[in-house]
Design a protein around this nucleic acid. Sequence first.
DNA 1: GAGTGTTATTCAACTTGGTTGATTTGTCAA
DNA 2: TTGACAAATCAACCAAGTTGAATAACACTC
Lengths: 187, 187
Amino acid sequence: MSRAKPAKTGGIEGLGRAIRRLRRQQGRTLEETAKASGYTKSLLSKIENGRVVPPIATLVRLARALGTSVASLVQDDGGASAAFDPGSAAGKAVQTEKGYFVFPFGGGYGNKKMQPFLFIARKGELKMDQLSHEGEEFIYVLKGAMTFHVGSVAYRLASGDALYFNALEEHHVEPLTKEVRYLDVFV
Amino acid sequence: MSRAKPAKTGGIEGLGRAIRRLRRQQGRTLEETAKASGYTKSLLSKIENGRVVPPIATLVRLARALGTSVASLVQDDGGASAAFDPGSAAGKAVQTEKGYFVFPFGGGYGNKKMQPFLFIARKGELKMDQLSHEGEEFIYVLKGAMTFHVGSVAYRLASGDALYFNALEEHHVEPLTKEVRYLDVFV
DNA sequence: GAGTGTTATTCAACTTGGTTGATTTGTCAA
DNA sequence: TTGACAAATCAACCAAGTTGAATAACACTC
């Protein structure tokens, strides 16, 4: 087992990460980019891994080589990720008209491609209409069981089962015979 | 200038592509995967690049090593819907060299946009490298707990927690302290 | 100034993932 | 059998990235 190297936490957090990300996005190699900025790939590697914190002078040349500004490198964007604890934070329970509960994970954060939901429904509560919409859907049953119809096929899904289908096909759940809890991801 | 090799157009178009994509998604290497299927990385490389068209027998073992079916590899244009009982059907357990189990549900290749996986790893077994790739990722922890890093942030995720992030950001799991089981959906 | 510590930077060796060409093996047709 | 041909292996190679040791540059004290 090899050591978890120092990984200097010195300067700005996530600087190296930003550089690597940008470089990769441009499809360029360590060597090429290093040369373009007048340094060596060795140094660049260390910077990207946070083992070295470059002085601003160096950073300037790096930024230029990457066609960006120092500012954009320094400003730790954090990207577009978010964690959810459905039990508390972003996951607020919602009771809809039709009597089923929805825990949307999505809260804030816009342009996501997927839309994950956690459905919790007690016996008899889940009565969805026939549904059909653009996109695709992935279902994973966490607890309980239900009968799911896609097109003309009926799937009996129990805890641990999964289903993947094109949402353009008509799909709906049969009236529940017991409590069920499942994850539903749209795309 | 070196040769632009034949690049045999022999067999099924896009087969190698499907294999490579799937392998990469699982964060596995040529060598590891080849070994898992009983072949050499050389051969696998050639197959992925379409320089060799494997007989079905070979394809079967490859598919198995990747935890999927031959059909799903061959069928360039899936699209339809499918149900999976991870316990039996399409969900076949695969133990990789790095010691984690993957239950691919079969989406992904073909037309499907999402690629859902079920990861089950015992204490200390899950050792993924720093990873970064196109797309987005949604994680839902079914059981146990783990510390997940995205960018420079560390998320402590326990059962019932979810995480959504841009896969371009470097992300990886900390060595596990207990068994964990989580759903992972790529898009 | 000279001396000392720190840290960036380079260099070369190494590692790892992947590719390639030259062989060997296996299968099938004649 | 033999010959033909493709799959499979082997080992050499390549390119990207990492690392440790050595060097250069800078920032402090005295």
